[in-house]
Design a protein around this nucleic acid. Sequence first.
DNA 1: GTGAAAGCGCTAACAG
DNA 2: CTGTTAGCGCTTTCAC
Lengths: 334, 334
Amino acid sequence: MTIYDVSEKAGVSIATVSRVLNGSKNVSEKTRTKVLDTIRQCGYTPNAFARGLGLNTMNTIGIMCADSSDPYLAKAVYYIERKLRTNGYDSLLCCTGYELADKISAMHLLLTKKVDGIILVGSNFIYEKDSENKYISDAAARIPVTLLNAALDVPNVYSIVSDDYTSMYQAALEMVQKGVKDVLYFYSSTSYSGKKKLEGYRTAMEEQGLLSPELVQYFSGSHEDVHAMTEQLKTLKRQGLSFHGVIASDDILALAAVKFAKEMNYRIPEDFSVLGYNNSMLATCCDPELTSIDNKLETLCQHLITILMGVLAGNEMPKKTVFSGEIIKRGTTR
Amino acid sequence: MTIYDVSEKAGVSIATVSRVLNGSKNVSEKTRTKVLDTIRQCGYTPNAFARGLGLNTMNTIGIMCADSSDPYLAKAVYYIERKLRTNGYDSLLCCTGYELADKISAMHLLLTKKVDGIILVGSNFIYEKDSENKYISDAAARIPVTLLNAALDVPNVYSIVSDDYTSMYQAALEMVQKGVKDVLYFYSSTSYSGKKKLEGYRTAMEEQGLLSPELVQYFSGSHEDVHAMTEQLKTLKRQGLSFHGVIASDDILALAAVKFAKEMNYRIPEDFSVLGYNNSMLATCCDPELTSIDNKLETLCQHLITILMGVLAGNEMPKKTVFSGEIIKRGTTR
DNA sequence: GTGAAAGCGCTAACAG
DNA sequence: CTGTTAGCGCTTTCAC
């Protein structure tokens, strides 16, 4: 069933069918209904490939995400996909993993498939060296690229971020002011946003004259391995490091800190404070429940889509948009 | 840059360029390298839309998932996307939500976009009435449809499931045999697999002469609302229902049961046992850690892809594939 | 308001 | 082994 069949049955030309299909103004009401009727009758659907070839777009956006099974990223992908679809775009998903080479080849794939834009979900797509971000600027030379939770100052790249620096700065400051001694920073990501968070902690501690290198601890294991996280804290303790609070770059690391505290028989939050990040489901799964920083993921996603749609419509859009986070107080902090 | 430009620069016909592009055998080594060189030189990439129009496929698979932010489904989507891509297929993701109407329109969309196959992730796509599954059989009349964690006996639909019935049967039996009195079944899904699980519990309890309607409790709130789940258990208790164990259809419900037990000052597992389902990250986040049923998600996904690829290659493939689950013992059961 | 016809860029059958 | 050519199904001028 093609546009030719329809045109024949309706007794009009294919141009007319095409016009009613695309809602053109220049069709008499009479022929419009006639065409619409026969379309309905034979259940005709336009061929998307042919349409794509003609218009040079199939209205799809490429979503790249290192690991969409990470609950935080999964949520982002979910919001983004839904909002894209309500805007008439489909989502081509690519879970790239964390290797640069795989990200590059996924990017190529998406470009090959002629998506109309690309969304990079998560800050791990931005690297230190400019040369390692070349795959992004190269892509942006062809189609708009939007970044969630990361920023890159390159033409045709649009960044939407939460102010992780300030959130962490305030969290650290607050914990210190409540009298928590030796606040340890526990993190697992050195991504763009990971760096901002760490910087926020560092600045706050430095201003208080409390910054100490051994209080900044990197966890290099699997994102899901709570045991290993807890184990690392226990080892630190065993080695004589003293700390009575943990600020984590992630709720799961925070959860590991809570586990650690329990095993040590510390009272939470009296003897030991914990603060997480993302305000994920894990925060309420924990006991006591986690104080956690909410970075307004849905809002970020909403704006990301708005900006991308604007760019695709040819409008001038802000290169960088920053939202504030919010500390959600629960049981693990005073 | 089109195939014409390349053919001109290389001094061959477009057919030859097309041949080297598609790895045809009938090209002399000399012209092949010549063409390949000029392709590299001018950085030519074939136009996917034109290719799609000619071949009537763009090698993409539609993935439908009610809620890809559900950690379990997110993981499935992740596995599936990665495996699809290594098989040369891209993934068009549709997060449909739980409304039938939305599922139907998402299905239409994917069909319109001419995907080569459809994967339904999660058992919530199958309904009681045949009429409500029509959207699936209709789609299957056009392209292969594969079901993860659900089964439907319809031509061109392929089902890959874990044996939830047996897993739950054994779990319930074991708990009873360990002497746990009044084992409550706590569930939140009436999907295909949800029913199987419940049936497993029911049969086991019935065989022991222990089945009682008020021990089967449905939770209708949000999938993430641990509070509400705990609250429901507390209400039951307050109303005089006695139970010393909970078998949950989901790790998060199980986690809520653990919270409940703690608030009641029950000792786990001495006074109170809990068993979850999915063996998700939540199981190790919990304290004590959850005993949970592992339904081998990655294995299921792997086989699903194998079967789909087989079908697309024109091979005869099994209509239904069943895997066994496994109880992973941790701290919440004796 | 409607139709004829020229692409869009590629694949594949056919001829040589 | 290589080239010619006819589609694939739709959009979009350009005439009428």
